[in-house]
Design a protein around this nucleic acid. Sequence first.
DNA 1: AATGAATGAGATTTCATTCAT
DNA 2: GATGAATGAAATCTCATTCAT
Lengths: 223, 223, 223, 223
Amino acid sequence: MGIVERKERERAKRKELIKKCAKELIFENGAASVSMADIAKEAELSKATLYLYFVNKEALFLEIFNESNNNFIERIYSKLNPSMSGLEGFKTVWGCYREVFGNSEDLIIMFSIWNYIAPTLPFVQIGEEAEADKNTSELFYTMITDMIKKGIDEGIFDPTINPQTVCRILMILFSSIVSSASKLPKAVRKSQFILNEIESMYEIILRGIAKESVNRDFFKFLQ
Amino acid sequence: MGIVERKERERAKRKELIKKCAKELIFENGAASVSMADIAKEAELSKATLYLYFVNKEALFLEIFNESNNNFIERIYSKLNPSMSGLEGFKTVWGCYREVFGNSEDLIIMFSIWNYIAPTLPFVQIGEEAEADKNTSELFYTMITDMIKKGIDEGIFDPTINPQTVCRILMILFSSIVSSASKLPKAVRKSQFILNEIESMYEIILRGIAKESVNRDFFKFLQ
Amino acid sequence: MGIVERKERERAKRKELIKKCAKELIFENGAASVSMADIAKEAELSKATLYLYFVNKEALFLEIFNESNNNFIERIYSKLNPSMSGLEGFKTVWGCYREVFGNSEDLIIMFSIWNYIAPTLPFVQIGEEAEADKNTSELFYTMITDMIKKGIDEGIFDPTINPQTVCRILMILFSSIVSSASKLPKAVRKSQFILNEIESMYEIILRGIAKESVNRDFFKFLQ
Amino acid sequence: MGIVERKERERAKRKELIKKCAKELIFENGAASVSMADIAKEAELSKATLYLYFVNKEALFLEIFNESNNNFIERIYSKLNPSMSGLEGFKTVWGCYREVFGNSEDLIIMFSIWNYIAPTLPFVQIGEEAEADKNTSELFYTMITDMIKKGIDEGIFDPTINPQTVCRILMILFSSIVSSASKLPKAVRKSQFILNEIESMYEIILRGIAKESVNRDFFKFLQ
DNA sequence: AATGAATGAGATTTCATTCAT
DNA sequence: GATGAATGAAATCTCATTCAT
């Protein structure tokens, strides 16, 4: 039994190694210019070996993408609490975003892959078909929309706004930021400056959707 | 003299033809999947001929990009008027955006190219080096920043906001929208729905940066 | 002794399993598109294990081929009887062919393999070297030739024909039919229609080599 | 005008060169083991160049196949004459076959390619679907069938035979012979011996389908 | 004895770019 | 000035076979 488990562990390790190397290269050079040969070299394996772990290049990239995506969403979910107010919810989401963005390259890699495997697909669908297409981030979409609705009910957000629209705007914004950041020179990607800039954006949006009567300092909570 | 000029004119015409064909293909299929062979075929020229007009593929794409970019900015400039208030300025910019987005494919082509030739470069620089890097859209940047400052002076925008930051946020937003739109199925790219969504976003941002005392309906001017 | 024998028995069983699986796959998809990986999977063994039983792919395929070939010939031999007339011999051979063709996939698998491992070798040698090369089917060759000679002696077949030539013709014909049949959609491979067609062919050949005086209905014996 | 034509001629020449080299290699080693790299090397061109003349490997091989096939059929057609008797027709076909087989490698290459690109398709369809599938050699099929019918009308062939069946038998036979011959060592492929063997086969078939009353020496015309 | 893991060698195909005419 | 033709370099993927455990 020990042997089988060890083998499995080792296999899993190899798979992780490959993904790790792929991620490094994607982070370094962008998904579009990373070849299977590059990854093999980085992992000190033969090209053929990669195909023992992933049926093709797309599968490898997709697995990386999905993992990062799920990790991010799960992290948020684990911290969200049904009893939270809409505003607390936003605060929590922001905290996660800040944390993930500051501590790993996952978000950046995610968008690099996304732009590579689906260059003609927006990460967030805008337009008539948006409602239908929730496969990518259905959970996230629902989650944010619910938070906005809650905020409206609680009298913080302007009841005339359309929660779906605002949600899409937020998602586009976040993904754009990451996308932009993923294109920055590595050295400055995670700087405090960027986080501040993102925070400013977040604040502006919140104020923009706030109910008129709500004092704008109300949204200074972000740190 | 006539001959030399005619030759030059013809040369210019050819160049335009090549760019026109390239743009059509980019709009149709996305920059990433347009090859020099495709362009040559569309223009009914040989591949080699393309290289008589552009040193390489990147030069061709870059020229298209810069032209569209400059056209857009120039259009705005030609309609802006120093005597306008900050708000009128925003209104004008929005009008141009709406017009260009609704009537030509330039913005979409621009971003398709950008994502292709500089997937690791952000369209808008965020972060410490933003100030320095104004080569891409220096004019635009200055223009918008000035408008925001004016708005602050006029008592419409919150004086605590940082005009540069807000400007970058707006630019990211606009470019993201176009970028997202450029990835939508052709049929829905320019629909009223999308324009409405963009407008909502614009309104939210404006409200977000408005001075508290300003009535939010003040920004309903957009149509 | 029991242990050694059991081991040997088990080893033989494994070998059979491998061959059985290989045959199934060959029958299903054609020898050319069956990989060692496919066979290993089908047999629920590792690829490496296959190499414990067969030095390489060719050896495995060749063993299957030879076995089927020998089985077929032995079956005929067991039913042939020295006291039979040439015609009775032909009838018997035909019966075996019909039986094997109708009841097993062996003939089809045989030719699929043959075409794969020896695409540049004829199954039946024609030409000057035919006499020399009897390794593949020496027995069969001798058997048929003898039958033809007997037929000539018995006054059924035209004495001016060359038994060797006729034998080769018959062998080519039979192998061609099987070869053709092995390329048919599985569903129709063994239909009555095909058997009828083969029978017609057999009849025509027999009539073609018959002595002039022999009534052609003499060869209607085939059913 | 001269230039355009010269270019066209040269292009055609190159295409021929490529096909010639491919054919040599196929003849030498069998279609299955000829790679695009091999052909490029033989033709002293780069691999990429091959793709300027043929969209892919299959197209190259198919063109060779079809050309040979058409040449053969056209040659026969050009020599056949509606006023010929069925027997004269057979004689003519045989003459062509003998000539082509004796003077070029085309037939052999054809079958090598056929076995490679359509290993699971019989060259001649036997069985229920035979009638339907005439795409490969419809002309040839019709031609031979007509000749047989004529022979029956003229009182040479047995009226009880089924012309379609006999035609299929003949086609299988001929293709098998070539197929077998294509697998022989190059040196002996075209020897007189083989031609004699084929001739014997032809004779036997003709006698096999002859009307009983027809003297068998009637078919000695073949030489 | 069995196997999971690894790989070398090779297959087809694409594309930006060059060059002789 | 224009181009047909050519190509080097690279990409993805496959498969029979080997080897350490």
